[in-house]
């Protein structure tokens, strides 16, 4: 598989997971929330300062259909993640050769 093809497949999988499969995720509280309810400290949780964000709780404000609302939030989240993280890693990467010899290079430095 070419590297480009691999990256395209990985991005498509991420978009499908966040945009489509997420609708079918369990809506039960997660481990920490559940334990907080059981042991009685869930009430100390406060609403996040971003709780009125248009994508809060992975639902898009203004879209009533739950499937579409969650799907749009997931896809927007994936695209924001892709831009931010790829941008960051591209900025801080080493600028010398990009081939496999780098393992040998930093072995000799060690």
């Amino acid at each position: 598989m070419s590297r480009r093809r691999f990256f395209v497949v990985a991005l498509l999988v991420s978009l499908l997971v966040a945009g489509v499969a997420s609708y079918y995720a369990s809506s039960h509280p997660d481990g920490l929330e559940y334990v907080a309810e059981q042991t009685g400290f869930i009430d100390s949780a406060e609403d996040s300062a971003t709780s009125d964000s248009p994508l809060a709780d992975y639902q898009t404000t203004g879209i009533d259909d739950a499937r579409l609302s969650g799907g749009v939030a997931g896809v927007v989240g994936v695209l924001v993640m892709l831009l931010l993280s790829t941008g960051l890693f591209w900025l801080i990467r080493r600028r010398d050769s990009g081939d496999v010899t780098h393992e040998a290079t930093h072995d000799s430095r060690a």
Partner: peptide, 10 residues
């Protein structure tokens, strides 16, 4: 690395 971060988010 960018794709791994994106996949973990999803």
């Amino acid at each position: 690395a960018g794709l791994v971060a994106t996949f973990v988010f999803a």
